[in-house]
Amino acid sequence: MPILVAMVHKELRLDAASAPDGSKAIKKILSVAVNIAVGVAELRNQGFGSGHGQASTPSGLGVRHARLTVDAVVTWCELILDTLTDPSAPWRNNRPVAGATLTSPRTPPS
């Protein structure tokens, strides 16, 4: 999942490296956006989601954690969808990222 998320951000020019110069805050926020998507996938893989057929629900997380997770992933999804539908988004105006294919893994940002 980290590789896929990093690829999506890079292709849509949402990675920190593609942020406009002088926008340290946006670069930080875009880096956090990557971590949100990866963190939600990790949480699900640890058995906190209903998709892995757990016999019992793991304990330790409350409603506030569920709300945090849902709100964070909704924010990430809205960023991706808004970027895809924005007619002036940078990914539309620039040439494709060199070597970009769905089958070539990339190293996710650290």
Rank of each mutant, 00 (worst) to 15 (best):
M1Y: 06
P2E: 14
I3C: 13
L4Y: 11
V5Y: 01
A6W: 07
H9A: 07
L12R: 14
L14G: 07
L14M: 13
D15E: 11
A17F: 02
A17W: 01
S18P: 12
A19G: 05
P20Q: 10
G22N: 07
G22M: 03
G22C: 07
K24E: 10
K24R: 10
K24D: 11
I26G: 00
K27D: 01
K27P: 00
S31W: 04
S31Y: 04
G39E: 03
G39L: 01
V40K: 00
L43V: 06
L43A: 08
R44S: 14
N45A: 11
Q46T: 02
Q46W: 06
Q46V: 00
G47C: 08
G47H: 10
G47E: 11
G47K: 11
G47Q: 10
F48W: 13
F48E: 04
F48G: 05
G49S: 15
G51C: 05
H52I: 15
G53C: 07
A55M: 12
S56Q: 15
T57L: 12
T57D: 10
L61S: 02
G62K: 12
G62S: 13
V63M: 10
R64T: 05
R64C: 06
H65C: 10
H65A: 13
H65V: 04
A66C: 11
R67H: 08
T69M: 09
V70C: 07
D71S: 11
V73E: 08
V74I: 14
W76A: 04
C77M: 08
C77R: 10
C77A: 13
I80W: 07
T83Y: 05
T85S: 07
T85Q: 06
D86S: 02
P87G: 04
P90V: 03
P90W: 05
P90D: 06
W91S: 05
R92D: 03
N94V: 02
P96V: 09
G99E: 09
A100I: 00
T101Y: 10
T103D: 14
S104F: 08
S104M: 10
R106S: 02
R106M: 09
T107L: 14
T107P: 02
